[in-house]
Nucleic acid binder design. Structure first.
Lengths: 352, 352
DNA sequence: AGTTCTTGCACCATCGATTGTGCAAACAAG
DNA sequence: CTTGTTTGCACAATCGATGGTGCAAGAACT
């Protein structure tokens, strides 16, 4: 019934109502009115009209004219995982605090999909793009470069744009060492009793594996190749790998380095089909943190990547005038079993 | 060095190159060229030019003219939770398959933030809005209505727009009954030994509580008020409630109905500060599914809401010509302890 | 009173695509 | 050869906001 039942008000509507020109209205409502020497009283009038008519600028029009949209994009491999979802949560908070609009999209770890998604985002004139965990960061870089779009890699590095990533080598070392030390009470571990499952041939996995092997050599004196099982990230592939091992040896290795919480889900699927007791002496290290996983009935040592630190650093770097394509390492954190850490959610107020 | 080093190509650039008018180029590239009786050979020429110059339409311009953007929005309370992140994952897949662009944003369960976020999305001319778990769905409705934007509620219902939600009453009943039955082997449960923690005064919590109380009455013969502890959704508030109970009674109730996985994190935080053995006879029912939680050292019975079903239904309903503001109930699923279900991730291929 | 500033705003082109309309050239019909 | 018809496209307005430029009215100054 009110004016709200009509279509959205534009500066032209307000121009008619206020008796001033559209450009005056525009200037008043986007804050450049002082520069244009608009009278305070005129501004006041227009501001009131805008208020009562619930004016909000059409950002497509603004973006078209100014070739900036106010959108900042985050390209994720997937949503459904605590690591990436906390990335999204943290990213949003940062973008909001800059007064811009976050837009989070996933591309399923598919290089083609990654490029296509970047293209799409670019066609909406996003202002910056954060490329997180991309399978082919340099491919996405080409697309961004061609469009003159500022961008940065997170989690997995590229060679042509700056990257902010976890120190996966150090993290891999920490985690491996923690697993080994955990057995010092019960009984020393043999080299072939500590396996790594999951991950694929990406930078993060390679670095973690490098750390894993180095520490095994240092502490256990050997590092057999067969202890490395990069099964990819799909839970079911990881499950099959565990099944195969179990089939062959009648048990799991006592020590497991699981490359991500997604792979860990593969371990759960395996376990669901086997009696509980088979895993009495199991110790798992997982390169990711999930609060529930931390409380499982066997010791689970986890790595929490410093998402807040990475996002903060990424914003710093992307703001630089001429960001160099170098890699910034962020230290991850070792989390002992049965630890419930706070996360980005704790920053939110809980109403009522 | 190539044309890619310049700015993005427009229909005007292609118009010059091809010797035809911008409108012809536009028609060819957006598929309406048959209707405009453009010669096949002309179309072919333009298509090739577009290809070699990597033309992609500026969607802000297109959106401005056609007042449609190709964007479909999902408004979430938070990202960092398996329920909502699987919602995002599923939503994305659906939107992609319709050839549109998903845009997922969270609003922190804050009614003001919800409305502001909806406003922002509207200013980008999104085509549809899925409002998931909003604290004030009717407030968001007003905003959408004023802009003539199609919208639908998910997870928490509103009174003015169609809603697709879980059957929380039935889910609450199922979960409560499963908890009680779990004690039949060990020893029957007294009414005051089964508590509900978490949630607040929202529709979902109310329905679950209603189911909880009904089943307690039916099976245990009583339903004391003090067994209902709606602590809100913040993990720390839940933790404090558990601490308080423990302080007073020296133990936790044997049976716990936890209203969401976020509240469950509060229980973990509590447990981190207390010895393992205190929870030997504990049975937890959690209204949410998380694969890791399902394998905790005490029996955890979970409810998995049918996210795929809800999203599918929501798309059906929003596509209707005149969607009615009624509520569509989707049945959730009871998940026994130590169960690793597949999720939206399993639909993705794992390259390498 | 005449000149020069300053104030306060209006005008208009522009961003890139869409779409209703108009109109030549080619062709067919009479 | 004249009068329709069809084919194939060009023209121009439009979406809503932005920002450079220009200009009248009033103030300040000589």
């Amino acid at each position: 019934m009110t004016s709200s039942s009509k279509k959205k008000a534009t500066i032209y509507d307000l121009s008619v109502l206020s008796g001033s020109s559209p450009s005056t209205v525009s200037a008043v409502l986007n804050g450049t009115w002082q520069k244009r020497r608009i009278k305070e009283s005129t501004a006041e009038l227009i501001r009131n009209l805008a208020e009562t008519h619930q004016y909000t600028a059409n950002r497509q029009a603004r973006g078209l004219r100014s070739s900036r949209s106010g959108l900042i994009g985050l390209l994720l491999p997937i949503h459904d995982n605590r690591y990436f979802s906390s990335m999204a949560q943290t990213f949003e908070a940062h973008v909001r605090s800059k007064g811009q609009c976050p837009i989070v999209v996933s591309a399923s770890r598919d290089p083609k999909e990654e490029r296509k998604t970047a293209e799409t985002l670019i066609s909406y004139s996003i202002d910056e793009l954060f490329i997180c965990g991309a399978t082919d960061p340099d491919g996405v870089h080409e697309v961004c470069e061609a469009a003159g779009l500022k961008h940065i890699n997170i989690d997995l590095p590229g060679t042509k744009a700056p990257s902010v990533i976890s120190d996966n080598y150090e993290g891999g070392r920490m985690l491996t060492e923690a697993i080994i030390r955990h057995f010092q009470a019960t009984g020393p571990l043999e080299p072939h009793e500590l396996y790594l499952f999951g991950g694929r041939n990406d930078h993060a996995s390679r670095e973690r594996i490098r750390g894993f092997r180095a520490v095994k050599n240092e502490l256990l004196g050997a590092d057999p190749d067969e202890c490395i099982q990069p099964t990819g990230y799909a839970p079911n592939n990881a499950r099959l790998a565990f099944e195969a091992f179990y089939e062959k040896h009648g048990k799991l290795p006592r020590g497991l380095f699981v490359n991500s919480s997604i792979n860990f889900e593969g371990l759960l699927r395996f376990m669901a089909g086997h009696p509980h007791e088979n895993f009495a002496d199991l110790v798992v290290g997982c390169y990711d943190y999930d609060p529930f996983a931390s409380f499982l009935p066997f010791p689970v040592i986890m790595i929490r990547q410093d998402v807040e630190g990475m996002i903060t650093k990424a914003f710093d770097v992307i703001e630089e005038a001429r960001p160099q394509p170098r890699i910034h390492l962020i230290q991850p954190e070792l989390v002992q079993p049965r630890t419930a850490l706070t996360g980005p959610l704790d920053a939110l107020k809980d109403i009522e």
